[in-house]
Design a protein around this nucleic acid. Structure first.
Lengths: 147, 147
DNA sequence: GAATGTTAGTTGACTTTAGCAACTTTTTTT
DNA sequence: AAAAAAAGTTGCTAAAGTCAACTAACATTC
């Protein structure tokens, strides 16, 4: 790849890092960290064992264990024994956990809306098309299974 | 903005967060943190007082002071007295500091290249065009001065 | 089928990262 | 000249993250 392309990609990365930081600011208005929010989200989606979460989110298993413990102690998660494999503790959101996830999700929506709503409709449609193209290209040619 | 657009933007954000995490991995192969690398970069660009760096990078000034102290102790930075205002300590990269910055920069290039080089030329050109369009749109309509 | 190795998760000890407030020195304001 | 503000340092603390040792359950292999 030529140097100019690398430069442009890195410039985009820098600029978009700032956007992502702004969209993450809503976490400051909640009592939950980014990791906690992400855990609730992924568990809701069905990624429901500590080991799966560890592999997906690349967090230390010790730290993960403690973080999950905290969420359990707050009543957002419950452990469900896994009958096939008793080493595994399956995780589920409680009703409270679902409520919290919904709240966090709405704030994230609001934050994204705030950041992008000033872009006029047609231009926004282009931006969204661009995003999908980037996402697909990166996904398609990536050897990293998780992207 | 409609819910579908918000969903798409958030999906892109999630997927691109993973890309950025991968491009940040080179920091693990160096002895420098993201903040340290960024400080070297910005000082090289001429942002050369702790206060300016604090405003640009939004870091606590106490933490910044200590981080700069560390870089000075490692011989990557030197303090130059500011004759106009003796409260200010201007910062400059030493030769070693420049070398380290160059090394970090090359690793970042390599990482980006690794991630994107598998995308075929034409598709890559589209991706880069998309990135510029997104960057410009966000910048143009953003009220945040720093984006 | 007992020994060995591996996997899931927990815990203790520790380091790094970060934030806050008090403080010194210098400059600016009134 | 006094008061306020700005630049930077330091002490104290908390949160975030890492690492290794450990238990219990499961898998392998001989």
């Amino acid at each position: 790849m030529n140097a100019e392309n690398i430069r442009k990609i890195r410039e985009f990365n820098r600029s978009y890092t700032r956007v992502l930081k702004l969209t993450d600011k809503y976490h400051l208005d909640t009592q939950y960290t980014l990791l906690e929010s992400r855990l609730l989200l992924e568990i809701d989606r069905g990624v429901n064992s500590a080991n799966q979460l560890m592999l997906l989110l690349h967090v230390d298993k010790g730290y993960l264990s403690r973080t999950l413990k905290k969420l359990k102690s707050e009543g957002l998660l419950i452990e469900v024994p896994n009958d096939q494999d008793k080493r595994i503790k399956n995780l589920n959101l409680t009703n409270d956990g679902e409520k919290v996830l919904k709240m966090i999700d709405q704030r994230a929506d609001t934050q994204v809306e705030t950041l992008f709503s000033s872009i006029p409709t047609e231009e926004l449609e282009n931006v969204i098309r661009d995003m999908q193209e980037i996402k697909n290209a990166v996904k398609k040619y990536s050897h990293d299974k998780e992207i």
